[in-house]
């Protein structure tokens, strides 16, 4: 039974999703440890280095592999820490996390390819199989053999159904964008304190705000009304993810990534400006406004700032999709 990030238990029935909410904390870097780890700059830099190494080693295979391997790494770090990082030890941890991931996901790559990849080394370090096996055993013990990680991906379909978008093109678009956000935000240590389901809900809200801002209040209500979700915590997580997304935008802009000037992107720019205004507003005068107040202001600004022609042409495809 190969492991699938979206269905950590194969054939999970939709009415049994409550069980995932019950046990998800067993598969999450511990909140207490994230507080501790933040105080250790060394471990933060070590984590960054390891993530880079894992991404480098596994990007040739499947990006989903990176996500699971990094999940194992994070849970291992919060359990064990690395007090005396040595280059070879760091690399061994990364390689072992990848090896465990490959076993869990049942990838069909020839063993020789995997072995060659795992032994790829800038520093000329090649690990014996037995060494990797011993590190694997250590990681398994630290993670208590809970290798079918419950990640934000396990909850995306559930929340999309809550939003009324099950099996719809709009739902697929949201899912794709939310997945992209989840992938990219994994690097961010500020999210360690949040449960996977909260991250999934926040990523979907972020995606819906970005892609379908006029439906956003409805989606927010649908998710907030769920008894599985704490609204205040979603708000906190949403802000962190939003910050990450904005930083991502700035980073792309600074890198001079060219973008075609399409209506969607024009709207993106407007919302980016809107975010800046919101930030200024909160700082200067409206710090006590509720999130709903923020929403109202964003909508007004967005509407006022848009060319009616662009707005109309953008809305029509969405309306058509909604009617399906």
């Amino acid at each position: 039974m190969e492991f699938d990030l979206e269905n950590p238990l194969e054939n999970l029935h939709s009415d049994d999703v409550s069980y995932l909410f019950l046990i998800e904390s067993d598969h999450t870097p511990s909140q207490n440890h994230s507080q501790t780890l933040k105080a250790r700059d060394l471990d933060i830099s070590v984590r960054r280095e390891l993530i880079s190494l894992i991404s480098q080693l596994s990007c040739a295979l499947d990006p989903v592999l990176s996500y699971l391997a990094i999940n194992y790494l994070d849970r291992f770090l919060t359990n064990q820490g690395i007090l005396q990082p040595k280059p070879w030890a760091l690399r061994l941890v990364a390689v072992s996390c990848i090896s465990l991931t490959v076993k869990m996901m049942g990838t069909e790559y020839p063993a020789t390819d995997i072995q060659a990849l795992l032994n790829q080394s800038d520093g000329g370090i090649i690990f014996e199989t037995q060494t990797i096996q011993r590190m694997e055993a250590l990681i398994l013990g630290a993670l208590q053999w809970r290798m079918r990680s419950i990640t934000p991906f396990s909850f995306v379909a559930f929340f999309i159904a809550l939003m009324g978008l099950k099996e719809s093109p709009m739902g697929q678009v949201l899912k794709n964008r939310a997945s992209e956000i989840i992938f990219k935000s994994q690097r961010e240590i500020r999210l360690w304190g949040f449960k996977p389901s909260i991250i999934a809900a926040s990523a979907l809200l972020c995606a819906s705000h970005e892609l379908f801002p006029f439906q956003y209040p409805f989606f927010l209500k649908a998710i907030s009304d769920s008894s599985y979700v704490n609204k205040e915590i979603v708000e906190q997580c949403y802000k962190v993810i939003q910050d990450i997304a904005i930083e991502e935008e700035y980073s792309s802009a600074l890198n001079g990534v060219s973008r075609s000037d399409t209506p969607i992107n024009v709207l993106d720019h407007h919302f980016l400006s809107s975010e800046s205004e919101k930030t200024n507003g909160i700082t200067v005068a409206n710090a006590t406004d509720s999130p709903l107040g923020d929403l109202k202001r964003r909508k007004i600004t967005g509407c006022g700032g848009n060319n009616p022609t662009i707005l109309n042409s953008w809305i029509q495809p969405c309306e058509r999709e909604c009617e399906k």
């Binding site: 039974m1 076993k103 869990m104 990797i132 096996q133 055993a137 208590q144 053999w145 809970r146 290798m147």
Partner: peptide, 14 residues
């Protein structure tokens, strides 16, 4: 090392 099937099934039990 640890067989993949063992890893997957024990993880289910957990």
């Amino acid at each position: 090392g640890v067989p993949p099937t063992t890893l997957r099934e024990v993880s289910i039990l957990r």
